[in-house]
Structures are given as C-alpha cells and as structure tokens.
Design a protein around this nucleic acid. Structure first.
Lengths: 186, 186
DNA sequence: CAATCATTGTACCGATCGGTACAATGATAA
DNA sequence: TTATCATTGTACCGATCGGTACAATGATTG
C-alpha cells in the first residue's frame, strides 16, 4: 500500500504543525507521526528540508492574506473591505484558537531565517489597511498609526486569548478594534 | 580553575536565552556555550532539568512584574502608576528589542507545560490595570475592556516591532496606547 | 507490451538532544 | 589539620535530531 500526495496538499498540513509546535518544536518524525507522510515524500517535495517546508508554508499563508485581505483593502470599497477583514481574520484564526505563524516566527530566533518574508507580510498588511483607511476619509498620519494599531492589536489578541485560553477575549478584542477604526473613518 | 555560581545569578542568564531561542530552541549545550555554566551546575540548581529552569525563569519574571507593575497599579496613585507602567514596560522590553517570554510561551505548545503560570501572569496584569483605571474614574465595564486592550496592545507591539525590526514601532504603539487610556480616565 | 520516471518506504548516517553518574575541587567548620 | 559538604567538570547514556541513499512501487507514455 502506498499513498500518493501532492505538494499543494502537504503545505496546509505542515502549516498546522508549525503553528502548534513552532519551528524548533517541529521535527520530521512528528510530521510523519501526525500526517502519515514519510521522509521520502517530504524530501522529494522539499529538497531543502525543514527550512524549505517552513518557507513554503509562509508563502502559502502570505498568498492567502494577499488574496483575501490585502487586495480587497487596496482595491475594493474601503468600508466593506475593512469590515470583511475583521470577519475573515476572526474566521482564519478560529476566534483565537489558531495563531499567526508569521507573528510566532517573529518572536524567537526563527525570525533570522525568514526576516524578509516576515517583514513583507506585516508591511503589506499595514500598508493595505492604511490605504483603505485613507480612502475612507482618514488623514494620512492618523491612518498609519491606526493601521499599525489594528495589526498589532490582532497579534496581541492572539497572544492574550491563548494565554487565558479564552476565545471570547479574541472576538471581543477584534470587536473593540473594529469600533475604534470605524469611529475615526467618519 | 572553577567558577562558582548562585542560583539567583543564573536565572536572569537563562531568561535571556529562553527569550531569544524559545523553549524548544534552548538546548543545554547552548546554555553552556553562552554562559560557561556546565551541566553539573545546571542540574545541581535545577534537578528538574530544562522544565525547572524555564519554570524558575517564569517565576522570576512574574516576581519582577508583581513588584514593579502590578502592586503600584493596585495600591499607588492610579495616574502615577499607569504612567509608570508605560515607562517601566518600555525599559523592561528595551523598546521592543526584548520580547515577553510569557507571551512567547503562550503561542506554541510550550503553553501546555506552563498554562497556570501563563494564565496567572496575564490575569493579574489585566486585573491590576483595571483596578487603576477604575480608581481613576473609569466605569467597570469599560475599564475591563481597556485593560485587556492595553495588555494585548503591548504584546502585539512586541510582535510587530520585532517583525519589522523597528524599535520605533514599539515606542510609538506604547505612546498611542497611553494616550488612549489617558483620554478615558478624565 | 516494455520502458520511463515520479513517488514512496526504509534502512542508515553522524550530530546533538536531555539527562545521569561520579570523581575532583574547594570553601567551611570543628 | 581534618572532616564535611556544597559545587563543578567530564565522561557517558539511550533517544532523537535533520538529512541521505536507494531499491521497490506504480502510474504514465510510447
């Protein structure tokens, strides 16, 4: 018996493991244990080993945010895009049950491995949000501060809700942030 | 030649290493490499091994916050204590260069090892801040939300400033948070 | 059918992991 | 001085680490 995988199917599985265990905590044996995918397959699709696996996961995450969050913020109706951001972020992070892999990588030495990808992810999030805020009538300086506050607030809400093991904390924090940005736009 | 240590001197050294490398990323050999302390000494002071070392570091961090942040928030003049919190937090985290070990542990599976300590640290921070806010004239419901927002905001600012490798982001975020809490108090 | 080739399971590699055992060291106290 | 005892350096343990080699598998193509 022999199961055949595709690279595109493996990446989301890897993502969940890196999210839960972190980069250092993720070992090849635990990947095999939790997915059934052997080393042969893993090194066939990711010849660069663990580093390439994590890199592929980061690229996948980045692609999702670019499509689902950043592009709407840059191009669509500002009010609608910002409203959609809150609901999409709440769904994506499962109300705080899931964490942000990029944020987690930023905290420890894993950052050194992926500093470019990590920086890009947040820079583009903040820029896209600021763009939407300005189109909604917010002056530039205030829009930059608000955008940073919103993105940082989401990351902090993830930390806090996991620390307290309380998903309501995340949803509540998102709600407070949404109201704050809303208030400045009109 | 033989260097003699005390447990109290070792803990801060361990703290810095756990902060930079995370729990899984911190190995005994790297501790020895960066501190010169051998396994003999480490297991003499921490018979429980790595878990006890990290536990001692968490207790040390908790003690510092209890003394320098929480107690003033609960007992001293509210305005002064909150103002002191911002400057002390900015100093403690070196304007975002240092991260919060408790928050980092909360993000990955390390949380399972120390869930009680992690939960306590944040619960007491939020409670103390809410107490100060209420004494400063903030109604209870709003004080709870603001306290959570403040603590989460600090954690998010740490993530963001490290991700962007920009310490100004941290100082700016702290400033924005301070102004926000200040506005509601009067 | 035969040949090709992407994919997979498994055995194996040296290095490092967390942890233990214990003798050497050196300060303290009788 | 001698005995005691906390402290340390070092050698060692089995397990696991990330990674490699390669033959077996099986779908695809001519």
């Amino acid at each position: 018996m022999k199961t055949v995988y595709e690279r595109a199917d493996i990446v989301p599985l890897l993502a969940e493991i890196f999210r839960e265990l972190g980069y250092e905590g993720t070992s090849l044996s635990r990947i095999t244990e939790r997915t059934g995918i052997g080393k042969g397959s893993l090194y066939h699709f990711f010849p660069g080993g663990k580093q390439e696996m994590a890199g592929a996961v980061l690229a996948d995450v980045d692609g999702w945010f670019e499509h689902a969050i950043y592009q709407p913020l840059r191009k669509d109706d500002a009010d609608q895009a910002i409203a959609a951001m809150w609901t999409n972020v709440n769904d994506y992070f499962c109300s705080g049950r899931r964490i942000c892999l990029v944020g987690a990588f930023a905290l420890d030495e894993t950052r050194e491995r992926f500093s470019a990808e990590i920086g890009d992810y947040f820079i583009r999030w903040i820029d896209a949000l600021r763009s939407a805020l300005m189109r909604a009538g917010c002056p530039e300086g205030e829009a930059q501060t608000l955008a940073e506050e919103g993105v940082a607030g989401i990351q902090g809400a993830l930390v806090l809700s996991r620390a307290l093991d309380d998903r309501m904390v995340f949803t509540r924090a998102l709600d407070t942030l949404a109201k704050r940005l809303d208030a400045v736009m009109r």
